[in-house]
Design a protein around this nucleic acid. Structure first.
Lengths: 230, 230
DNA sequence: GGCGCCTGTCACCTTACTGTCACATCCCGG
DNA sequence: CCGGGATGTGACAGTAAGGTGACAGGCGCC
């Protein structure tokens, strides 16, 4: 899963015009976009940087959309992405086959751009709750992923980028314990190799920041396991 | 799938030096390691004790890495392992072919040891999530493996890591009598050398913790056999 | 170039946890 | 009622895990 702030959408379509159109609209909606011509290129793109959402055209050369979907869902990275099949066929049978293959959603041409964006966001929320521009809340702490603002009991807090993403991760799954390794993956990124103790340091900094205006420490340390937010 | 605490990594490489190097580093990182010379030995090793992660060299005698990967993924045990292809070839095409064959990840020589370990851990997390069932219940005791929380009659209890795992083991199979040896295996790990009396001590501590807010002792001592939870 | 902010690492400290021992207690066969 | 093996448990020292201040490098911004 990519860990930058903007969600990444992969567009898989063999028509350049269609790719350009989708790219333009998705970028305008604040997403990063990568493109692929066919199923094989798609697998490459996924290995390169795992997208959050994949828009997959039904009709593809070489590797059909259906088969591409199966492979994506069978791969390590692709399993973490939401796959939306895009098709001109409106038949129910195809829809069923698409979903059976592991597609998460289905959208039929012709569609409005608004509908497309809405679908992407909906799936994004499911796959990566914090990235969809949601406001996360936990107790008296509010974190707005769109405006990058964090408040506690109404008081604004200043966090660095890393602390921000760390807090977002913790709040995304309240109560759940994150191991240091999982946090490194989620906050720092999959291909970054960093000492796990660094997580401790950042948790410490985050704690200090969260308590600047008083209030109890909201982060729970689980000895031998990791950290959790309550 | 093996069930001890230490994950098992199978290294498949025809160069003894390479095997030794990988083994050393993986063991240093806390993994158990088995090795295989080629694809056929790999299949044997998998039948012996299913590894959690398989490091598969691209170039192998007799059975190419690609073909070996296909066979592994087609076998009963191998399907449960994450396969990481290790290759000197950096060509994109190979990467695709590797992933198409069912490899879960791909790493290209030369790679740093840190990267290798990180990859192994990342795949391990995916293959073997901490625990299957999130919440265990027995009587008025609740144990949540995701949030690492234990409550009795609603009251939160504080347990150390070992006590937590011990309780989880007992609750996982209510009524079953665990021998001290089995508990040592399950809670402490397979090849850990510890006095069996230590189990008694921890059971005692666990009992005390479970009864802090009153309530009957839920752990039954079976004289001459071990312990069980009712 | 100077400055300040953010980051990752390290070293040191504190604390909780752990494994073992010694001794008390219990259970059961004889 | 007794002896011996099995279990309960308080004490204790060693250790591993986590908290934290310090520091140097990187980076963007004046």
């Amino acid at each position: 899963m990519n860990t930058t702030d903007k969600p990444l959408v992969l567009v898989v379509d063999d028509e350049p015009a269609q790719r350009a159109l989708l790219s333009y609209n998705l970028k305008a909606a604040g997403f990063r976009v990568s493109t692929a011509n066919d199923g094989e290129e798609a697998m490459l793109a996924i290995a390169e940087d795992t997208p959050d959402v994949i828009l997959l055209d039904w009709m593809l050369p070489r590797l059909s959309g259906l088969e591409a979907c199966r492979q994506i869902k069978a791969s390590a990275g692709g399993r973490q992405s939401a796959v939306i099949m895009v098709s001109a066929r409106s038949e129910e049978a195809d829809r069923v086959r698409g979903l059976e293959t592991g597609a998460d959603d289905y959208i039929v041409k012709p569609y409005s751009v608004a509908e497309l964006i809405a679908r992407v966001k909906a799936n994004l929320r499911r796959v990566r709750p914090a990235a969809a521009g949601a406001v996360l809340e936990a107790g008296d702490i509010r974190l707005d992923t769109e405006s990058y603002r964090v408040t506690r009991a109404g008081e604004a807090l200043h966090l660095g980028p890393t602390e921000f993403r760390l807090l977002a991760a913790l709040m995304e799954r309240q109560g759940k314990v994150w191991t240091r390794e999982a946090l490194l993956d989620r906050v720092w990124g999959r291909d970054i190799y960093i000492d796990t103790r660094t997580v401790d340091v950042h948790v410490g900094r985050l704690r200090k920041a969260l308590c600047t205006h008083g209030g109890a420490d909201p982060i729970r340390t689980v000895r031998g396991a990791g950290y959790a937010m309550d």
